[in-house]
Amino acid sequence: MAWTEDLPIISIKDVHKSFGDLEVLKGLTLDVRKGEVVCIVGPSGSGKSTLLRCINGLTDIQAGSITVEGLEVHTPNLNKLELRKKVGIVFQQYNLFPHKTAIENVMMAPIIVLKQNRSEVEKRARALFEKVRLTGKENDYPGELSGGQQQRVAIARSLAMNPDIMLFDEITAALDPETVNEVLVTIESLVADGLTCVLVTHEMRFARKIADHIYFTDRGVIVEHGPPDVFFSQAKDPRTKEFLSRIL
């Protein structure tokens, strides 16, 4: 069945994932629609990051199914290039390539993977630097940039592949409180462009402001979900209430 825009862009059905004997995802089901911003919150170790890694096929699943724009992710004959052109991911630790300058980090994938013309890629990369507000830092090496700047380079690096969906894995968790905001502002501008975003985050105030839908996970299952207003003011499950009272 061909995928159309009125179907969920990401469809996760009853996904189970274990590391050895430890089951981290115990039957998760959730849909993300095109242009939607979904935040996944929950205590540490509840499988949030693992779920993101499953969505772009960085790690495999034991049961269930994940489709991205109709593309089944967990089959042996997955076209990885096809999937990863659709889905970008930004990590907590930035994971920039330390031997390349900031702009080379952004330009590498389009040039090497998509075999695009170097000068056009460079033009786009400079535009992306403007978007993440790092103009002037193009030729710095990652080691010369602050955490917040590195994280924005990492965002630009993912955007250079023109993904339809961006996954953000606790991208402000390793940052100083002062630099968190500059990264969040960058994400807001992406959301304003209509990019589909899935965020795993501990920034509750930001999640409330930006999300269309919030999922609360604990011990590998979705405990509760809903639009931010409902989720934050009328949580029903005791586990959600306890989590919110601790974090807010």
């Binding site: 290039l81 990863r84 052109k85 630790q93 994938a109 993977v113």
Partner: peptide, 15 residues
């Protein structure tokens, strides 16, 4: 994490 980051950018193992 260097492998993972490159893999997420659609690099092949060889690349």
């Amino acid at each position: 994490s260097q492998w993972e980051a490159a893999e997420a950018l659609a690099f092949t193992r060889h690349q």
